Amino acid sequence: MAPAKGAGVAMVLDRRALNRALLERQLLLERRHLPALEAIRHLVGLQSQAPGPPYVGLWSRLADFSFDELAELITDRKAVRVALLRGTIFLVDGDDCLRLRPLMNDFLVRNLWATHGTAGLTGADLAEVAAAGRAAVEAEPLTFKRLGEALAGRWPDSDPRALVLAVRATVPLVQVPPRGLWGRSGQSAHTSAESWLGRPLSGEGTRAELVRRYLAAFGPATVKDVQTWSSLTGLGEVVERLRPELRTYRDEHGRELFDVPDGPLPDPTVPAPVRLVAGFDNMLLSHADRARVISEADRGRVFTVNGIIRPTVLVDGFVHGKWDMKAARGTATLTVDLFRPVTEADRAAIHAEATALLAAAHPGAEPTVLVSAGR
């Protein structure tokens, strides 16, 4: 389906073509028989502001996935939760943490200054705060509250929260178990990635590598899409250097799309199965124009004003509703709120997916699935 390099007119990819390409690369067109760690690497991590979504995200994508598999990766220090892309918490494999975290340093420091300015760090040198914070969390994993208290003793004129964020921006802090384990709760305690993983930051990750990996998992895409996903700037120059090795297309609005040479482009008419997608899923967050998977009207139903991105239902590859799951006293309920009516076949598929997710997430609980008629 891809044109040969050097073709004079770029192929136009419509919304359905981009949708099917995204689903295929996000492992949502069919469940894959992959180890969870391999899937995490392919996806360049999963957004993990809350501990639960990566479990559902992998369950939606992988055949025979067990929630225990991811929990073991976290306890065995093979996967970590760390501030990364867009400055938010990502679940990534240990190697990616060490390779990619240095690429985010400048962004995280700029974000710190934009949020607090110099007033929040009155009398504090950023490098000294970073060194003191690193020493504190490497001596013992600390919550942000305890870290702020420790640093405030040395810099009493500074805002303790600003001191903590200064450490977060300059030191790769990972959240240690039991935080991040399914069914476990408690405050987040942090230590440095180097201390937790037992090796230094590699410094080998490059912006070119990041662009290639983004396109492999989310493409074809515009430069603005890559910047939306990563929050890095200046990526236009990186893409231009890569242009000789990339394929190019146009979308329906004439925007230039870039892609890796072997990026799959399924037939736009290929059926897409019903999927329950996790909250905060990167499939919804990683493009400037998200029409390839969600309409603007539905986006307002899924993205809340306080930054929550609700779990969603895909029907024919596009967001068609949202869902919520709760468990208590030996029962587990999954409620689906459809934004519009669906066929009986799709309703049956939604019910089957919801029942299977309840069994995976809350084994032994009495399951209940409630699906609305659609508005």
Rank of each mutant, 00 (worst) to 15 (best):
P244Y: 07
R207V: 04
P244A: 11
R247K: 12
G263C: 12
E252Q: 13
L265T: 09
L242R: 11
F218E: 04
E240K: 14
V211E: 02
V239H: 04
E240N: 09
V270P: 00
S231G: 14
Y214P: 00
S231I: 02
L257A: 08
L232Q: 12
P264D: 11
P264K: 08
F218S: 07
P271K: 06
R241C: 05
R212A: 05
L235K: 03
V238R: 06
R255Y: 00
G254E: 13
E237A: 14
S230I: 05
V260N: 02
S231W: 15
T228L: 02
V260Y: 00
P264Q: 10
P271T: 00
R247D: 01
E245C: 09
T222P: 00
D267V: 13
L232R: 10
L246C: 08
R212S: 07
D262I: 00
H253W: 07
R243M: 04
A221Q: 04
D251S: 12
E209F: 09
L210N: 05
R212G: 03
V260A: 10
D251Q: 10
P220L: 02
E240T: 08
K224Y: 01
G263L: 12
L246S: 05
V223R: 01
A217E: 03
S230R: 06
E252V: 13
A221K: 01
